[in-house]
Amino acid sequence: MNFKRIQSIFLVIFIIMDVLLFLSYNRNSVGDSTASGSNNILEEMRKDQITYSKPTTKTHEGYYFSGNNGNALRQDAPELQQQDIRFSGDELVSEFKQPLKLTNGSVKQTLDKVVADPGLIAEGKHYSYSEQLSSKSEIIYVQRVAQKPIYSRYCQIRFDLNGKNQVIGYSQNYLEGVKMLKEASKTISEERALTWLYQYNEIPNGAKVTWVHLAYTRLLTARGQYVFLPTWVFAVKLNNSSSTILKRVNAYTGEVIKTGDNNQTSNANSEIFTLT
């Protein structure tokens, strides 16, 4: 009897101990995930009602490279047919003699054929369709280097649409003389770039990150050449606004790259689009 009593007392004590130990273990593993950093920041972003799709943790490789808008388009221009051409600086501006009709579903297919035709578009094989940069009034093709798109107004084809869903013409910039300035190096992951952007206070509460791309953008101009580097480009849509602001994060260092004359604004739209 007495022994049984001792046994039950021990049992109760051990069960209490188990519960306490279990709680302590659980708290530790929660603490663990806080320590791992970015998860916690993502959690914080959720609390600030920022919407985003789950970022990847994969790192990539990219280059620094330089190039400029040279003479290639002027040299190719005589080959182009069925259009009126003029140059505005280094930019080729063309108007089709016969507007191209687009049926809604096949914008990409129709224009892919046009871009691939050297009689219609010069150097077209270096460009590819960008759904994200395109809008209702403008279809944008971006130049590609080392398997990645360049998001920059210095290397795009912009097709102008009229109200009847017809392509009336285009303007084009072409980056030539591309030179790698340094061997390939590792970039940070999308998740890290997103958390940096948030920590630099670049994503306001309630905003939505609509898309994220790893693309080359221009960092600076030196010795007459544009210098590009891999960046994570984020499209941020503000809570009560219809416009989308593009922000870019240096994919090597995680810094937010500022745009403009005195590098004041983190809005990268003017670097990526030609604003009229």
């Binding site: 300035l181 050449q225 210098v227």
Partner: peptide
């Protein structure tokens, strides 16, 4: 040294 720029001579 972090950001390479085009050199004068290659």
């Amino acid at each position: 040294l972090q950001v390479p720029i085009p050199p004068v001579q290659s």
